[in-house]
């Protein structure tokens, strides 16, 4: 009976309208970039409905001929290396922090959180001065070191959370059966926490891949990363919007499959405490 009342219909319509607005807000910019990326250069500033057929693949081809692919490669190399190094160091540390009887765990968790939350401008000022003196500006090594400040706290923290969710008995049983701690870690704990390991690696890669600030300050032309290289399409007198759209797509595409894999674990890895 209530279901037929006009009040209910109004509410339902309002709900639908809200859902539609949210969907539009979420999807419109993505659609816009996809459209912009295939617009002919001469039609970029025209409303879409005035020249809907001014479509071309030239923007993708011209990006392919520019320096941008090199910058993408730089991003892969630096974000990938910083992630692998941080995994090698951070995964065992996360395991030990979760399972060892240690004092000072609270301090450790605070420091890890703080390092993740500290404003990067604080890290970058001393790094910049050190790098200028040590000749590390515009080198892979310099950028990878800088990215370690992002990836290592994040990976250690999220592995700590993942390993905490594995029952202690599992590790104890393996050790009772005569396994060394290293074996219990590598053959029991890591496989049991595999989703967490994957999520940690993905999260680490994401923060380094997304970085703009460090690369802006400590790289120049030869090791510049893709997020900084996009800015080259903006010059004093003009902005190459179509190329920016293509570059944005190129920056996002490698992330999408990672997100699809990790989205279930991102929540747990990031906070680890929201299950309440």
């Amino acid at each position: 009976m209530i279901d037929n009342s006009s009040a209910f219909r109004v509410k339902k319509a309002l709900g639908l309208f809200m859902m539609f607005s949210l969907l539009a807000f979420a999807a419109m910019p993505t659609l816009w970039v996809l459209i912009l990326s295939i617009r002919e250069q001469s039609a970029v500033f025209q409303p879409i409905w005035e020249s809907p057929l001014a479509v071309t693949l030239e923007n993708f081809l011209s990006i392919g001929r520019s320096d941008f692919p090199r910058a993408l490669l730089n991003s892969f190399i630096t974000a990938g290396t910083a992630t692998v190094l941080a995994m090698i160091v951070g995964v065992p540390a996360g395991f030990a922090l979760a399972k060892a009887r240690l004092s000072g765990k609270f301090i450790a968790s605070w420091i890890l959180l703080l390092l993740r939350m500290a404003p990067p401008v604080g890290f970058v000022i001393p790094l910049f001065i050190t790098y200028v003196n040590a000749g590390l500006i515009d080198t892979y090594t310099g950028l990878i070191f800088a990215y370690m400040t992002l990836t290592l706290p994040l990976i250690t923290w999220s592995m700590w959370n993942s390993f905490s969710q594995i029952p202690d008995e599992l590790i104890e049983a393996a050790i009772m059966d005569g396994a060394s701690l290293t074996k219990a870690f590598a053959l029991v704990a890591v496989p049991a926490a595999r989703p967490g390991v994957v999520a940690a690696a993905i999260l680490g890669f994401l923060v380094a891949w997304n970085d703009f600030f460090f690369a802006l300050i400590i790289t120049r032309s030869s090791t510049t990363t893709a997020p900084v290289a996009v800015m080259n399409f903006i010059s004093y007198d003009s902005v190459d919007w179509a190329s920016i759209a293509v570059a944005s797509i190129a920056l996002t595409l490698p992330i999408l499959p990672l997100m699809a894999i990790a989205n279930r674990y991102i929540v747990q890895s990031l906070s680890g405490a929201v299950k309440g």
Binding site: I88, A93, L112, L115, I129, T156, L181, T182
Partner: peptide
């Protein structure tokens, strides 16, 4: 002791990559 050995590399790395720059700041 084994656990502690697993933490040491991370401790060193965190000190080098994060604590030292922060001290610099």
């Amino acid at each position: 002791r084994g656990y502690r050995r697993m933490i040491i590399p991370a401790l060193v790395a965190v000190s080098v990559f994060a604590i030292v720059p922060l001290a610099g700041m």
